[in-house]
């Protein structure tokens, strides 16, 4: 439980620190008039773009909490005696490479979007999705290899965790692909670059995040 407690407490600590920046010490009962707004001065304007980014970041913190809870459980379960480490199939290296490519492609698409380079945007974005799908296929292939070799989901906790963590990671990527397919449809259908810029940006951030998350999980699986 140490891992997750540390995480939760640091999230809350960052939150409190940020609150302090937001002038939680202000004596607002003495201040009248349009106050000094730490967001953007007195003429603050709502921006849907910023809000979407904030929401995505909060969401990624939540996913991190979710996976760290699994890691905590993993850690506790590991030491219970009946754990037989799993020989990971080499396919996972291939899938890691694919996910890295997906991430790079989306970064290129983002670059294309911010410089109004439509062809770069289109190729990069489509490739990003295709590589992500290829990653999922490779993961699926790794599952097949393992179960063919007799490492079934219920035969050992190490196996159970392997399927669980990779599966859940895949589900999060699938969610991302859902958003991706919508935006890809728009781009392919010739929507103006400005109208998809935000979604492209959000997709790329999410892709990078899922890549890092996968690296973390892969490292855990490799070393235990």
């Amino acid at each position: 439980m140490n891992i997750i407690v540390l995480f939760m407490v640091s999230v809350m600590a960052v939150f409190v620190w940020w609150m302090v920046l937001q002038r939680v010490t202000a004596k607002t009962w003495l201040e009248q008039g349009v106050a000094i707004d730490p967001r953007a001065g007195a003429d603050f304007q709502y921006s849907h773009r910023v809000a979407s980014k904030v929401a995505l970041w909060v969401f990624m913190v939540v996913i991190t909490a979710l996976f760290l809870l699994f890691v905590t459980a993993y850690h506790m379960r590991m030491h219970l005696g009946d754990w037989r480490p799993l020989a990971l199939p080499g396919t996972l290296w291939v899938s890691s490479a694919l996910l890295l490519l997906a991430s790079i492609a989306l970064q290129a698409a983002r670059h294309g979007a911010s410089n109004n380079r439509r062809s770069l945007l289109l190729t990069g974005f489509i490739l990003g999705g295709v590589f992500a799908l290829a990653f999922l296929a490779a993961q699926w292939w790794a599952w097949q290899q393992l179960s063919a070799a007799g490492f079934l989901v219920a035969s050992n906790p190490a196996n159970s965790f392997f399927y669980l963590l990779t599966g859940l990671h895949a589900v999060h990527l699938l969610g991302g692909l859902l958003v991706w397919s919508k935006t890809a449809g728009k781009i392919a259908g010739g929507a103006p670059v400005a109208s998809v810029r935000l979604s492209v940006e959000l997709c790329s951030v999410y892709w990078h995040y899922l890549f890092l998350l996968w690296l973390g999980l892969f490292a855990l699986l490799l070393n235990t």
């Binding site: 937001q22 002038r23 939680v24 202000a26 349009v34 106050a35 730490p38 007195a42 603050f44």
Partner: peptide, 12 residues
């Protein structure tokens, strides 16, 4: 976090 109206600081 984002949609507070003008003048609505957190501490208000």
């Amino acid at each position: 976090l984002q949609a507070r109206t003008q003048g609505m600081t957190l501490m208000r």
